[in-house]
């Protein structure tokens, strides 16, 4: 089957539809997933196609959305629970961290939790401090859970399908401002991407940019600008914060000896901190400069357009960070 250029939104829809057609145990539950068609229109038409049994509108109750999905997964179904935005996942933190991630271990492997929790992340939409978080790194702290954050339509489809087929719980994080981005995506219903594999999105020799999610977009734009100045950046898209695959980062670093980590997280205790620590541990002999980090500023996000953008990363900030290194 051929590839087709589609949006991230369409890629997500296709992944969900194909997996629901493939496996009766797969169902969707969450706020506004059914009659409304999904707040980001990812599940539009699903309730007509699959019925109310498999496309289940819930009350606004994040604790029980996540918790009931864990129970249903333990009991043999393959739920896809939607938490409308990751800001609301804080309400479900206990169900995700203490139960989705731990029941398998705590009961010595008696239970399996084949669960996907889909949610959206990110700021930049003038939604104010409580609706603009990009805190996926918090969830990546905990063993027992996988955390995936696609940055392209191709990855969105392949990673979501892999998540649904996997027997482990996955927090699947989609960026709310990137749903219209397009890419060529395989139509093959068996197209899946491996869980926990980073991907080199751009080849270069001068600096390694490590990123994921929306950071990929800022980094790609920055790389085009840098290229005009004769600086070729290699971009490693982590795609998964857990399992975290830094092998391609290390391989790249051996060549570039410089690294910038680009992410939308807050600056403290973020992925940049982890990558910097591992690079100094594994790649000390290859280091020509300290690892630099580009992230959001260490403040809650404000409403007003100009100052909100000021607080977020940007391609310009990535360019500036790279130029400090090379």
């Amino acid at each position: 089957m051929a590839d087709k250029v589609i949006t991230i939104r369409e890629a997500l829809s296709a992944a969900l539809r194909e997996e629901m057609q493939r496996d009766e145990r797969v169902f969707i539950m969450g706020e506004e997933v059914g009659v409304w068609g999904g707040t980001y229109a990812v599940t539009r038409g699903f309730i007509d196609e699959f019925g109310e049994k498999r496309v289940r509108d819930t009350p606004i109750s994040e604790m029980v959305i996540a918790g009931a999905a864990v129970g249903a997964a333990m009991a043999g179904l393959r739920p896809i629970a939607e938490i409308m935005t990751i800001n609301f996942a804080f309400l479900a933190l206990d169900a995700i961290v203490n139960h989705a991630a731990k029941v398998r271990y705590m009961f010595n492997g008696q239970f399996t939790v084949p669960l996907v929790i889909r949610t959206t992340t990110g700021g930049g939409k003038q939604l104010g401090a409580t609706h603009s978080h990009a805190p996926e790194v918090i969830f990546a702290h905990f063993p027992g859970l996988y955390v995936g954050v696609p940055g392209t339509a191709y990855d969105a489809k392949g990673m979501l399908k892999a998540s649904i087929r996997d027997d482990n719980p996955v927090l699947f994080v989609e960026h709310s401002t990137m749903l219209q981005r397009r890419a060529a995506v395989p139509e093959d219903p068996d197209f899946v991407l491996p869980i926990g594999k980073s991907d080199v999105k751009r080849r270069g020799k001068d600096v390694t940019i490590v990123t994921y999610g929306k950071g990929l977009e800022w980094s790609m734009t920055a790389a085009d600008t840098l290229s005009k100045d004769g600086i070729e950046a290699e971009i490693v898209d982590l795609r998964w914060l857990r399992p975290l695959d830094l092998e391609p980062v290390f391989e790249s670093f051996k060549k570039t000896n410089r690294c910038v980590v680009v992410e939308e997280s807050l600056p403290m205790f973020n992925i940049g901190a982890e990558v910097a620590a591992q690079i100094q541990q594994e790649m000390f002999d290859y280091m020509d400069a300290p690892v630099k980090r580009v992230s959001a500023m260490d403040i809650p996000l404000p409403y007003s357009r100009e100052i909100e953008l000021m607080a977020l990363p940007s391609a310009e900030k990535v360019v500036a960070a790279v130029k400090e290194l090379v």
Partner: peptide, 25 residues
Amino acid sequence: MWGGYGIVGGHLPLAAGIALAAKYQ
């Protein structure tokens, strides 16, 4: 026996999910 749970109330949504699985199937 789906377990004892240490977080007060944490198992209640799990119970709902287990019941959902029974009904679904």
